[in-house]
Design a protein around this nucleic acid. Sequence first.
RNA 1: CGGGGUGUAGCGCAGUUGGUUAGCGCGCCACGUUCGGGACGUGGAAGUCGGUGGUUCGAGUCCACUCACCCCGACCA
Length: 490
Amino acid sequence: MAKVLTPKEEDYSQWYNDLVLKADLAENSSVRGCMVIKPYGYAIWEKIQQTLDRMFKETGHVNAYFPLFIPKSFLSKEASHVEGFAKECAVITHYRLKNSSDGKGVIVDPEAKLEEELIVRPTSETIIWNTYKNWIQSYRDLPLLINQWANVVRWEMRTRLFLRTAEFLWQEGHTAHATKEEAMEEALKMIDVYKTFAENTLAIPVIQGRKTENERFAGALETYTIEAMMQDGKALQSGTSHFLGQNFAKAFDVKFLNSKGELEYVWATSWGVSTRLIGAVIMTHSDNHGLVLPPQIAPLQVIIIPIYKSETERQQVLDYGKDILHELKHHGISVKFDDRDTHKPGWKFAEYELKGVPIRVAIGPKDIENKQVEIARRDTLDKFYVSRDTLIEQIKSLLNEIQQNIFKKALNFRNNNTYEITHIDELKSNIENGGFFVAYWEGTKEDEKLLNEQTKATIRCILPEESSSTGKCIISGKETKKRVIIAKAY
RNA sequence: CGGGGUGUAGCGCAGUUGGUUAGCGCGCCACGUUCGGGACGUGGAAGUCGGUGGUUCGAGUCCACUCACCCCGACCA
């Protein structure tokens, strides 16, 4: 008996916390609100990065890197942008320390005060648009399609591993376009990329929509979002793409000469996903035994565990297993053979279940004799024997099947916890149990605030209009085509 | 930033009205028996009791201050 998780049913957030720590994904650091991402957790992030990076490049984007620090004056150039971020900025005021007079340490040297304070980027629109000003003169310089992989800092009051940390890793795309239509198309294209990635790679079903004015990104004219439902019925905003209009171009005076020789302001988008996605993966698929990882981002897809008694058996099992190891590697499968003699098989079974390895292959003397192996799949915990001859093919298709299965499971869960409502009372009486509530909405900003105060829920997104059918807004009673998802959110 | 709570070995905790050498479980190390679902035995290492100051013959224990972390709210990806 070693690592026991708090059961989900008992305390969901405790379960989440236990899991992150015990699966060795991350831990709290001695810096308030900042986490240490441990090798296993970082390996998942690397998988996420690799896939997304490829998708960004396939859609014509390139990577670059901009400074961590932003002069304070830059941030205030776009009024609503600074308003949104001002309350959570880390500020650098000095550039030097000196020995304290009591000799016990160092103090900030008051002589070394910066002329202008620097802000640790909470997001990079301002520093990037200040740079784009120098890069863009003519329509021939457009579009500019740039992404950066970086860390950002937002001084959050309350933090939770992966879901909300003061420093987090993300990617932020910042694009510049000659026309409104092209920028809008880009913003929509990227939210599509995120949706595809979430569903195909992370196996997380998401609802795509746009944010209400209240929930929009600071400085955006339109924010598109993908919203996922966690196992406790709460929503997690998993990626956003913003149509920024000409706000930043105007704030930073970025103009280009069009083919007719006229000066115009540039149109912009920005879009990002963060290490929060790891939290989304955990809270979508995992169970009381530990992590359940989608094969596509599992750092380890297959674990091989030997079972033996005597030294001769050990040699035989090792030979048999090494063979399988090399063959799987040859087929591009990420696999490890845990031949450590310091832990017993049962211990290893539990350990790799905790870590969410999709497929476990166990081999003992019995299996060598029968030319087979025992396979256990992490998603269903089913165990069965597979002939050695067809093993490789079966593992390949099983990885695929697991990927599909956990997606379907998550989709069913979401469908079963999504409710169409026609009156706000239905929301009030059911919101405590979580879930997505679909309602017609034609309310004002104030109505939205009222909704939040009364139910603790928020409008997660406005759904795309699929048909021309209409209904009555649950607050104002106005007839409308607009439908929204309401839910409690992380 | 308001309300509540906790700081004792790597982790989880116990420690009586102040009284010698501060314990327990897990983990760790060594050896042996084990090995198809988190093994067992024997021995061992590991602690400035969050910090500072005070009361006292004597403080993990009492007092003051302070720091850190956790939970609940307001804020947020």
